[in-house]
């Protein structure tokens, strides 16, 4: 995939939903393009609509208006199963709360997306090992998430997001539950991954964290504006 080619494009995307009696516009006319190899921070205070944007980018939610295109194809026409397939094969998610399955071992957690591939790759075991190596968690492969520290858990979650070699990595407040030192290490990991060519989108409320990324998108009251580069 050539560097700079388009991965995701939003065309005047809006999202509104009822909250009690009021209709909330969580997102209004958001238009931007995410290209291969970019490192983007989506910056906004809590309640600004950045989580909604994140869910839309991962097709976990559908827009009320406008169009989202993945690799140039509109997402709206896909069935839920087709979207799930794209999530399994081309998108990696990292959450603030790690969201590991507590009863599965680290290895099994990392392998989870591979089970949902159309045809499970033959080198699944290798891929899991490589992903764990990349985040430096090889020696904890057989532990349960409960036996790990917050930083280690987030590394496992990142390994899980990377195991399917996704075109785009979406991270929602990945350092929100971590102390400053651990957060810095995780940010270094993201930077390293981007240097290796991975497209990365990080959602955060913290300008300091956003400053680590070349491109910034500001979200305020549901409106997305292009921010300055760090």
């Amino acid at each position: 995939m050539p560097l700079g080619s388009e991965v995701l494009r939003l065309d005047r995307v809006g999202k509104r939903y009822p909250m009690g009696d009021v209709i909330v516009d969580a997102l209004v006319d958001a238009s931007f393009t995410l290209n291969e190899g970019e490192a983007v921070a989506i910056l906004g205070p809590s309640g600004s609509g950045k989580s909604t944007l994140m869910h839309l980018l991962g097709f976990l939610d559908s827009p009320s208006s406008g169009e989202i295109l993945f690799e140039g194809r509109p997402v709206a026409v896909l069935t839920e199963s087709q979207r799930a397939r794209i999530r399994a094969e081309k998108i990696g998610f990292v959450f603030q709360a790690f969201n590991l399955l507590p009863r599965l071992s680290v290895r099994a957690n990392v392998a989870l997306p591979l089970a949902y591939h159309g045809s499970p790759p033959a080198d699944a075991a290798d891929r899991v090992s490589r992903a764990l190596e990349l985040v430096g968690m090889t020696n904890r492969a057989h532990h349960k998430p409960g036996e790990l520290s917050g930083g280690q858990r987030q590394r496992v979650a990142i390994a899980r997001a990377l195991v399917n070699e996704p075109r785009i990595l979406l991270a929602d407040e990945p350092t929100g539950n971590l102390d400053t030192k651990t957060a810095a290490a995780i940010l270094d990991l993201f930077k390293e991954l981007n240097r290796l060519g991975r497209t990365i989108v990080v959602v955060t409320h913290s300008p300091e964290i956003a400053a680590n990324f070349r491109r910034q998108l500001h979200v305020r009251d549901g409106r997305v504006t292009e921010g300055g580069s760090a």
Partner: peptide, 16 residues
């Protein structure tokens, strides 16, 4: 419920 959400986020289809 949470596990189901995680599985869906990493690519599980409703049929899965």
């Amino acid at each position: 419920v949470r596990e189901i959400g995680i599985r869906k986020a990493v690519g599980a289809t409703p049929f899965n």
